[in-house]
Design a protein around this nucleic acid. Structure first.
Length: 150
DNA sequence: CGGGTTTGACCTGCGC
DNA sequence: GCGCAGGTCAAACCCG
């Protein structure tokens, strides 16, 4: 189960000073997993999705990242004693999903997994969060290329 | 009354 | 092929 939990080296797990928008979080955000999921099946479907997982230490489950989310499911996963919540962006053309679950043993650690890319502007002023996301896009990390926000 | 959440059922992918 | 685990749906429920 932990086969895809890639702990980044210490240099990458940099503490990020969050803006006042995250004043209720005001902790440190540790990115412990980033993965670009590109199912390049040569058959008929080529799905490219980005998935970013944040590990935050916060008493609040859902981070207010400026987008509006609607919960559509909750599941008890086998490896974790805490339930995992499934959220989806409320914009109809934006099929960005995110999963929120707590750590198996540290209930103060919240793992937020974003999947997909937003195709619409942010409602609130959460530009800081977008910058955080941009900094940890695989393109910026690996190739120094601009992220594809289509 | 309307929109969002809850929660159990259903579907699907994967490993054995 | 079967069973399990994860992901989604949808109807009921709750709250503003």
């Amino acid at each position: 189960m932990e086969k895809h939990q890639v702990m980044l080296p210490t240099a990458s797990t940099s503490s990020i000073a969050l803006s006042s928008h995250f004043k209720h979080v005001q902790k440190e955000v540790l990115i412990f997993q980033m993965k670009e999921i590109s199912s390049q099946n040569q058959s008929d479907k080529e799905v490219k999705q980005h998935r970013y997982a944040f590990q935050t230490t916060s008493p609040i489950d859902v981070l207010d990242d400026g987008y509006q989310w609607r919960k559509y499911g909750k599941k008890i996963v086998k490896n974790n004693s805490f339930p995992r919540s499934y959220y989806r962006c409320v914009y109809p053309e934006c099929n960005v999903k995110k999963q929120i679950q707590r750590h198996s043993e540290d209930e103060q650690v919240v793992v937020t997994t974003y999947e997909g890319t937003h195709t619409h502007p942010v409602d609130k002023s959460a530009e800081t969060f977008n910058q955080i996301l941009d900094n940890f896009l695989p393109g910026n990390l690996l190739n120094n290329a601009p992220p594809t926000l289509e």
